[in-house]
């Protein structure tokens, strides 16, 4: 049995937004609405899902960058759910996040050298300026950036170059768990391949574990062992990657897979178009949250929240189409 590195249970994040002209009443955006999952040591779990379904929020909750509304997070055997800042310091190095928006996550007043050297210094991974500088250059090289970039500032880079700076910074401290939020979305496919190969190598070398959030399904398929599909604050389906692509069960997963663009200008498309507008996380639909857009919705989907249905050891789905037996 593989070791569970991260256990997440009933995780919720409700963002308050003001309502009414005076902003007196409060409403809540249910960004993450009761998420349960386990991540095994040394595995890559991919997370895909509709834009705005709570992927980044989930990542930030696990790395304790924002406060959760409720839920339990157990990391490496320690219940870190209620850790305060001081206690978090001991785990901070072990959980690193690669941010979705590199521009917003890099300090504009620091040079790239300083940005990458900072965590090395904080966690005392190098001693002395010379060693630190050497390590910084090494890390930059690994993500395909030459040493001449080191003294430059974030705004002087292209989108993809900035993204790679974020990757180098996260990998610098040799964490246990890396939460990578769209880490390769701004890279051309050749550099993307290099970075993905590097992430795979590092994973094997240091037994790293990744939570890999992305919307490019072929990338997710390549890097992941398992994949979780999210919809409006919850998981819809989780499965071994091969199984998910061969035998997608949730109608949302099926629609998602059918919409992948094919790199062939003559390819014929056979898309499942999702009807209806995207529901709001302020007032999510009753029952199964996907029922308003599902092409196979039944009466009970409108009222009953689907429970986890285990298809096999590695595959579970939250959909009434598969829980008839009960």
């Amino acid at each position: 049995m593989k070791k569970i590195l991260l256990h997440v249970e009933g995780l919720k994040k409700y963002y308050p937004v003001r309502k009414g002209i005076l902003g007196s009443k409060k409403e809540y955006v249910k960004a993450v609405d009761g998420v349960d999952f386990d991540v095994y040591e040394g595995e890559v779990i991919g997370i895909v899902g509709e834009s705005g379904c709570g992927k980044s929020t989930t990542g930030m909750l696990i790395s304790n960058l924002i406060n959760k509304t409720s839920g339990k997070i157990i990391f490496d055997g320690k219940d870190i759910s209620n850790y305060d800042n001081a206690q978090m310091r001991s785990v901070r190095k072990d959980i690193q996040m690669i941010f979705q928006d590199p521009y917003a996550s890099l300090n504009p007043r620091m040079s790239v050298r300083e940005i990458i050297a900072e965590p090395l210094k904080i966690h005392k991974l190098t001693s002395g300026k010379e060693e630190t500088d050497k390590r910084v250059v090494e890390l930059l090289k690994q993500v395909g950036l030459d040493s001449y970039h080191a003294p430059r500032y974030p705004h002087e880079f292209s989108g993809g170059q900035r993204q790679r700076i974020g990757i180098a910074r996260a990998l610098a401290v040799e964490p246990k768990l890396v939460i990578a939020d769209e880490p390769v979305s701004a890279l051309d496919v050749s550099i993307q391949s290099q970075v993905l190969n590097l992430m795979k190598d590092l994973k094997e070398k240091f037994n790293l574990t990744y939570i890999f959030i992305a919307h490019d399904l072929s990338v997710v398929e390549h890097i992941s062992d398992r994949i979780g599909v999210m919809y409006l604050g919850n998981f819809a389906e989780v499965a071994d990657k091969k199984e998910l692509y061969k035998n997608p069960l949730h109608p949302y997963t099926q629609a998602l897979l059918s919409a992948v663009p094919v790199p062939d200008p003559r390819a014929k498309k056979d898309r499942i178009i999702l009807e209806g507008s995207i529901p709001s996380a302020l007032n999510p639909p009753s029952g199964c949250k996907f029922h308003t857009r599902c092409n196979r919705a039944m009466e009970r989907c409108k009222v009953e929240v689907p429970k986890k249905t285990v298809i096999n050891e590695k595959h579970y789905v939250y959909c009434h189409l598969y829980d008839e037996k009960e």
Partner: peptide, 13 residues
């Protein structure tokens, strides 16, 4: 300029 990098494939479509 990279208008759909942060979008899932159904919304992208």
């Amino acid at each position: 300029d990279e208008p759909t990098t942060a979008l899932d494939v159904t919304i992208q479509a």
